[in-house]
């Protein structure tokens, strides 16, 4: 199965209200700021318990190849449950996490936000573009741009992220590591 990032979901009768679009935007901005500030526990609070985070590695293939640029089941940068993301983040909190100390200076830039109805009532598809800018030590600088598809769920505690797919542009990650989320 190929994953087409341009695929448009079947439009239901529902439409996102201005208020909802505003709320989703605020959620995504808060999400970006919490990552910039490396407040991971608060970032995890934005997610539902069944949250899945998928960041596949793009493959450069001919247009006529039936296998896609992105496909599930391949090696991925991330293909994690919430618990597994928390395990990763727990390393960053250790005093011996050498590559995190001094800390990286992060900017997560979020733009191009669109909100559409998802399949189930109470769920919305939020598309966005994110650019991660990292600067470390003296002069190490890395950029990574990506298009995102988030499943946003209405819960008693407000809007939460239930599923995030991140489609990065780099097939060779032009950095030695990737020490944040997107």
């Amino acid at each position: 199965m190929s994953v087409d990032v341009l695929e448009t979901p079947t439009a239901g009768a529902r439409q996102a209200s201005l208020q909802l679009v505003h709320d989703v935007q605020q959620l995504l901005y808060r999400d970006a700021r919490l990552l910039d500030e490396q407040r991971y526990d608060e970032w995890f609070d934005l997610m539902t318990e069944d949250f899945r985070f998928w960041v596949p590695v793009p493959q450069s293939r001919y247009r006529r190849d039936s296998k896609g640029v992105f496909e599930p089941g391949r090696m991925a940068h991330f293909d994690d449950s919430l618990a597994e993301l928390k395990l990763r983040a727990s390393r960053w909190k250790e005093a011996t996490a050498w590559s995190e100390d001094p800390p990286t200076r992060h900017v997560h830039y979020v733009t191009n936000i669109e909100v559409e109805p998802a399949e189930l009532d109470g769920e919305w598809l939020a598309r966005s573009v994110v650019i991660s800018l990292r600067n470390r030590n003296e002069d190490e600088e890395n950029w990574l741009g990506a298009r995102r598809e988030d499943l946003v769920r209405e819960t008693p505690a407000g809007l939460k992220l239930a599923h995030r797919k991140v489609f990065v542009t780099q097939s060779v990650l032009l950095a030695k590591n990737f020490n944040t989320f997107l």
Binding site: H77, D80, L87, R88, W98, F178
Partner: peptide, 16 residues
């Protein structure tokens, strides 16, 4: 992916 990849918990310190 979680251990020995650029996002992995072991590999990021090696690169440094």
């Amino acid at each position: 992916s979680r251990t020995f990849s650029p996002t992995g918990m072991f590999e990021s310190d090696d690169g440094e």
